[in-house]
Design a protein around this nucleic acid. Structure first.
Length: 640
RNA sequence: GCGCCCUUAGCUCAGUGGAGAGAGCAACAGGCUACGAACCUGUAGGUCGGGGGUUCGAAUCCCUCAGGGCGCGCCA
């Protein structure tokens, strides 16, 4: 609807003598000034060499011809302010408009935690961002496939395998037995830091570690067996943890299968034949295969080491080629993790062994987003560059780095958790480090939130039985966590403070949930059924609103108008590649609704017409707000 | 040295080149006889890091300086 008006102004600008003029609309500072504002006349003034006040009427007249426009005013030095026909405007809000429709599958790859230790607060940011992004795109109509890359042959898994073998004397069978413990990943967390300290202080351990890594890569025992047991069990734990906050995956892509199924060998041939990589005859990279690029400091980025092994960047090139359907190789797939209910949905995993029959189709994507922290911007650029050289320049645009900043800890949090090995930087923030064991584990944090929520729920709802109370507490904890992770722009580093994170007042998940719960309670009080689709506005909405006193008309209309803006907010979030945009929409909506519900009685309003109108506002808000929260993975508790 | 990100109220953060720069927390003053106050209303709090420039108009774009974070490996 908005784009229709923009198009009208664009045409009017063209007729006035400025074809192709970039027309943008904005929200007026107050509802009294209109619903949509065009500052277009200012820009046109320069092009047309006429004052803005002379140009504005041309735009206004064009807008007045549209059926969805009720009134147009020219304000101040030349703003064109549009008052829309409200019923028509709301009716058009049902279907969101995808700003960049994708023809084919769109992969969102996120989480991708090394499967050698428990997930921590930093991984939660990745998963929450990736999952929300995927949900938003799906809402806009995209065919989304969620992948999770598992580095099961890297040094991190090698370290824990080394720990089990050398420090614990455990076999692969022993590890599989240990992995039956409910939080095996916690055990690995501690072992990993133990090994890291050992390797730092003992040269012999460093030698053993190289041996373990080599064993993982070349399928040699005992390393391969122990490593596989660790990686599979910990990856499973990560899926359990993420499932607790509503994050699910379609496919786990394992590095091991990329190597074993010769994806890299094939990618290497392609890179070599395309001249994208070459062997230097001299210099310090003698004996390697390198890609020449100005991105690298000395103009060369090593892809294959002089000992013949491939770097992480090389493996990622092969993986991304496969994701884009540019590699003539295919994985085999195994069903790996069933998600509750009727097991209607499951996460699959790649395998180099026997695959299950009839797996879903994976890969062959038109577009891929890689949710990876900002530190990896450089290697991601190298991978993009490689893909472009192997195929076409346009393929570079098909693989994108969804970059976000890191999570660190406040000194107070480090102290409260008694984290040893933590060194505060000058800025006060403490870097999360799996290697050092410095971090807030995801499950611990969620448990703490649940505990805090349980207390709040018990206090407010003493009549609830334990099971109900726990269910509500879980929903609140998930809401608090998910909102915390997306309320700030992804480019802003987060310094995590435990006490602050446990707060449920103000701009928090529970605040957003509270508005939804209140709205639903009102519907219940009014004996109105919960809306199953966006409620249709009454035919005489515009007339009814005109009959209200000005203050209430403004309050109700802004609530309706902004609720109808969910699709636009989702589209902006997709464009900016940042769920924060939608989180802001949800927060502002909750704020408006809370103010509304204090000011205007609904179920208890005696005048039937007014009651019906306010009820329509509540229904519309509730439907859209719950939908928006769902896109952020925030559940609506049945009670608070 | 090169590249990316950040710098807005005491703190944590929003802010499409456009109309008095906004929230939350903290502080202060109010509001529960329940569509339940996890809420609402109000007060106070600003050199948008500094300086130039472009523009009718700059927190927003460009240049520059300063401060902070992170990259630039035959680690992943």
């Amino acid at each position: 609807m908005l784009s229709v008006l923009e198009e009208v102004v664009r045409r009017a600008a063209a007729e006035a003598g400025a074809p192709g003029f970039d027309v943008v609309s904005e929200a007026p500072p107050s509802p009294a000034l209109g619903d949509v504002a065009f500052p277009t006349a200012f820009g046109l003034a320069r092009v047309l060499r006429r004052p803005p006040r002379a140009i504005a009427p041309l735009l206004a007249n064009a807008l007045r011809e549209r059926p969805e426009v009720a009134r147009v005013e020219i304000a101040g030095p030349g703003y064109v302010n549009v008052f829309v026909r409200r019923r028509a405007w709301l009716a058009a809000a049902e279907t969101p408009r995808d700003p960049e429709p994708v023809d084919g599958v769109h992969i969102v790859e996120h989480t991708s935690i090394n499967p050698n230790k428990a997930a921590h607060i930093g991984h939660l940011r990745n998963a929450a961002l990736g999952d929300s992004f995927a949900r938003i795109l799906r809402y806009l109509g995209r065919d989304i496939e969620v992948q999770n890359y598992i580095d099961d042959t890297g040094v991190q898994v090698a370290d824990v395998a080394l720990g089990f073998h050398a420090l614990r004397g455990a076999s692969a069978a022993d590890v599989r037995e240990l992995a039956r413990a409910p939080r095996f990943d916690y055990l690995c967390w501690d072992l990993y830091t133990e090994v890291s300290r050992w390797v730092e202080s003992d040269p012999e351990a460093a030698t053993l570690r190289r041996e373990a890594l080599h064993g993982l890569e070349h399928d040699e025992e005992p390393w391969a067996g122990i490593g596989a047991a660790v990686a599979e069990a910990v990856a499973r734990r990560h899926l359990e943890t993420m499932d607790r906050i509503g994050v699910r995956y379609d496919l786990l892509a394992c590095e091991k299968t990329i190597v074993r199924l010769s994806f890299w060998d094939r990618a290497f041939e392609l890179l070599r034949d395309a001249g994208a990589i070459r062997r230097p005859d001299e210099g310090r990279n003698l004996g390697c295969w390198v890609m020449e690029t100005p991105l690298a400091q000395d103009g060369q980025k090593v892809i294959v080491r002089s000992n013949g092994t491939v770097t992480y960047v090389g493996k990622d090139i092969a993986y991304q080629m496969w994701q884009l359907g540019l590699l003539d190789r295919e994985f085999r797939f195994r069903r790996f993790f069933d998600y509750g209910e009727a097991a209607s949905r499951a996460a699959w995993i790649t395998t180099d062994g026997e695959g299950d029959a009839d797996p879903p189709r994976f890969g062959q994507a038109a577009l891929v987003h890689h949710v990876i922290d900002a530190r990896q911007a450089y290697p991601q650029q190298i991978v993009q560059e490689s893909v472009a050289r192997l195929t076409s320049e346009s393929d570079r645009e098909r693989t994108r780095h969804f970059s976000y900043e890191m999570v660190s800890l406040t000194p107070a949090t480090v102290a409260a958790l008694g984290l040893a090995g933590a060194a505060a930087g000058d800025g006060g923030a403490v870097e999360v480090s799996g290697r050092k064991g410095v971090g807030v584990k995801a499950d611990d944090f969620l448990d703490a939130l649940i505990e805090r929520a349980r207390g709040e729920v018990a206090q407010r709802n003493p009549e609830l039985e334990a099971g109900q109370r726990d269910e509500v507490a879980r929903d609140i904890a998930v809401g608090a966590l998910r909102y915390l992770m997306v309320r700030v722009t992804k480019n802003q580093p987060i310094v995590f403070d435990l006490e602050e994170a446990l707060a449920f007042d103000g701009a928090t998940g529970p605040y957003l949930q509270y508005a939804a719960v209140r709205a639903r309670k009102i519907l219940g009080r009014a004996a109105a059924p919960l809306p199953e689709r966006l409620p249709a506005p009454p035919p005489d909405l515009d007339e009814q609103m005109a009959a209200l006193d000005e203050g209430e008309a403004g309050d109700l209309w802004v609530l309706l108008r902004e609720a109808a803006g969910l699709g636009a907010a989702a589209a902006r979030a997709a464009e900016h590649e940042d769920p924060q945009v939608l989180a802001r929409w949800a927060y502002e909506g909750a704020q408006r609704f809370n103010a509304f519900y204090h000011r205007y009685p609904v179920a208890t309003e005696p005048a039937p017409a007014l009651r019906a109108l306010r009820l329509f506002v509540v229904e519309t808000f509730f439907f859209q707000h719950r939908l928006g929260l769902g896109l952020l993975g925030i559940p609506v508790p049945w009670r608070m």
